[in-house]
Design a protein around this nucleic acid. Sequence first.
DNA 1: TGGGAACTAGAG
DNA 2: CGCGCTCTAGTTCCCA
Length: 545
Amino acid sequence: MKAKLENNTVVGHNIKFEAKFLKHHFGITLRNVYDTMITEQIIQGGTQPYVGLKELVFKYCGIMLDKSEQRSFKMGAQLTESQQKYAIQDILYLPEIMRKQKAKIKLIDLQNTVDIEMKVIPAVAWLELSGINVDLKKLDEIKIKVLEQKNKAGKFLIQELTREQIEITPDTTQEKASEKPKTLTIIPNLNSPKSLLETLKAKGYDKLEGTGKQELGKYKGDELITNLILYRQAEKLLSGFIAGFYETQVKKDGKIEIKSPKYPHPITKRVHGEFNQYGALSGIFTSSKPNLQQQPSRYREWRQIYTAAPGNKIVACDLSQIELRIIGQHAKEPKYIQAYKANLDLHKETATQMFNVPLESVTKQQREIAKTINFGLNYGMGAQALKESLKINADIEVTLEEAQKLKQTFQRLYPHVTKYLNKAGEEEFQKGEIRTLAGRICKTRNPNKKEEDYKIKNKGKNLPVQGLCADILKIAMGNLFLILESREIKLINSVHDELVFECKVEKADEVPAIVKTEMEKAGNLFLKDLPCIAEVTIADYWNKE
DNA sequence: TGGGAACTAGAG
DNA sequence: CGCGCTCTAGTTCCCA
């Protein structure tokens, strides 16, 4: 049975689930699979985050399934007749669905995408089963620090923002008017944007139209605003990333109940996030419970909680500036191609030409401007957003006119890029879909919902780039699964352009080269005019750079 | 009370 | 005219 499952193509609906089950309970590793759910998502261009079997049976076989037995199964109990019937109908229609899907794939030329997606399924099962090791002591240290930051900033804010206001009574009859007016103490709720905005405006911050970081940038350097940003950062870390590791108290029917921590897993002691391989329109992965793709990295210390288990090392490898390289390839922009071929710093090259200064005298600030523009303008950023982005990301103030000029200079400097992006936007707008170089179809999520023209065009600029990035990473993941999984190496994270592995110290010499080679090989399938470079690091914890 | 919109912030 | 893109998740607020 084991050999049969491992050496043949196994068909299922959401087969990642079965793959994990078979591996965990029976040590069976599925390598060749066909998944009707993922295939349907491919056909639909990523517009549906989850497709049910019931829906497919109806679509392809014209039969309405009764799913009422789905939740009736009990551990250890003998199957009832109707449960058996249910179990059979769950697989009965799969061959017919597969046959009809395959015809459709051929018709709309999606075989390449299907190959990529099917090959990555076993790798995703591997990734989720591996989990990531976590240093709870380090986490405690960080928690104490962050709590301190929150309390300190919070105390300052409450002190500064609490205000007195004369109470306004709706009933203003003559008798009451003679009474002394009461004053009301208003303490703002720091977690409520509405309450905060009201309070800040009353305090004289009248330029604010919201309380987001971009708005707060209007008062950059102000002590109160600095504290608010520190408070927000701490609150975000605590509620979003730290809380899940600790038990929580929940009030229920007047009694206080203690809920156990969500992570790590009580038996494996590792964090097993979920990865949805077709969670986004572009085909990039999404992650949840917890979201391991959005773990803080600008707060440098955070990722040190993810460590190699004793006797192990962590090998992390990312595709260097992959999005810009993809744009360069799409646009066949000679300046991008030349810079990457010569292994130059593209941002610096951009700066030297934009500001018309020699390479060696490009300032850090000029490079930051070029970097912000390189990333932002490629997806349709306008002058206003550029102005604010420069202020927040690079601490650089420019006027709207200057931002407009910078944009123009950039577009004139890279005319091929500009032309390509406009063409891609137009294509998405006209056809409602656009393909990556690997053939993946990217549509707009809500074909029914009316979206502004410019938003659709911007998607057209962005989706083929992100989408090809996803194609490359998935190809590498699929191939690395076949090479590394059987050698007791764990895939512990996958973050858009980065793969993270954990292996025994003895293997830390050979694994990096294998990973680097496979990732570059995947990229070079599509980057024909400029090279794909992967950068690899070996460490005791997950550290970017 | 529960669902969902709005806002905010984390990542690439 | 000009409007960065793709996501997940937490909190607050509003409405049925």
